[in-house]
Computed example of a mutant assay.
Amino acid sequence: MREIKFRGKRLDNGKWESGDLLENQGRNFIYHATSESTIEDNDDGRIVVVAVEVDPATIGQYTELKDKNGSDIWEGDIVMAESRDEEYDNLLVGLPFLIMFSYGEFCIAEDEESPWGSISNLDILEVIGNIHDNPELLKGGE
Score class of each variant (00 low, 15 high):
Met1His: 10
Met1Ser: 13
Arg2Leu: 14
Glu3Arg: 14
Ile4Arg: 15
Ile4Lys: 15
Phe6Gln: 01
Arg7Lys: 12
Arg7Asp: 01
Lys9Thr: 00
Lys9Phe: 09
Lys9Arg: 14
Arg10Cys: 14
Leu11Met: 14
Leu11His: 05
Asp12Ser: 12
Gly14Val: 04
Lys15Trp: 12
Glu17Met: 12
Ser18Thr: 12
Ser18Phe: 05
Gly19Gln: 10
Leu21Arg: 09
Arg27Ala: 13
Asn28Arg: 14
Asn28Val: 10
Asn28Ile: 10
Ile30Met: 07
Tyr31Gly: 01
His32Thr: 09
Ala33Gly: 07
Glu36Leu: 03
Glu36Gly: 09
Ser37Ile: 05
Ser37Trp: 06
Thr38Asp: 07
Thr38Ile: 15
Asn42Pro: 04
Asp43Pro: 13
Asp43Phe: 13
Gly45Cys: 05
Gly45Asp: 07
Gly45Met: 10
Ile47Gly: 02
Val48Glu: 08
Ala51Gln: 05
Glu53Thr: 05
Glu53His: 03
Val54Trp: 04
Val54Met: 08
Ala57Ile: 09
Ile59Cys: 11
Ile59Met: 08
Gly60Ala: 13
Gly60Ile: 02
Gln61Trp: 10
Tyr62Leu: 13
Thr63Ala: 12
Leu65His: 07
Lys66Val: 15
Lys66Trp: 09
Asp67Tyr: 07
Asp67Ser: 06
Asp67Pro: 01
Lys68Phe: 01
Asn69Phe: 02
Gly70Glu: 04
Asp72Ile: 02
Trp74Lys: 00
Trp74Val: 04
Gly76Lys: 00
Asp77Arg: 00
Asp77Trp: 00
Asp77Glu: 08
Ile78Ser: 02
Ile78Lys: 00
Glu82Trp: 04
Ser83Ala: 13
Asp85Tyr: 00
Asp85Gly: 00
Glu86Val: 14
Tyr88Arg: 14
Tyr88Ala: 03
Asp89Cys: 05
Asp89Pro: 05
Asn90Lys: 13
Asn90Glu: 13
Leu91Tyr: 12
Val93Met: 07
Phe97His: 10
Phe101Met: 14
Phe101Pro: 00
Tyr103Ser: 13
Tyr103His: 13
Tyr103Phe: 14
Tyr103Asp: 14
Glu105Met: 11
Cys107Phe: 12
Glu110Lys: 03
Asp111Met: 02
Ser114Tyr: 09
Ser114Met: 11
Trp116Met: 11
Gly117Trp: 03
Gly117Cys: 08
Gly117Ala: 07
Gly117Ser: 08
Ser120Cys: 13
Ser120Lys: 12
Leu122Gly: 11
Ile124Pro: 01
Leu125Ala: 02
Leu125Gln: 01
Leu125Ser: 00
Val127Thr: 07
Val127His: 03
Gly129Pro: 02
Asn130Ser: 08
His132Ile: 10
Asn134Ala: 08
Asn134Trp: 01
Asn134Met: 03
Pro135Cys: 08
Pro135Arg: 06
Glu136Gln: 09
Leu138Pro: 04
Leu138Tyr: 07
Gly140Ala: 07
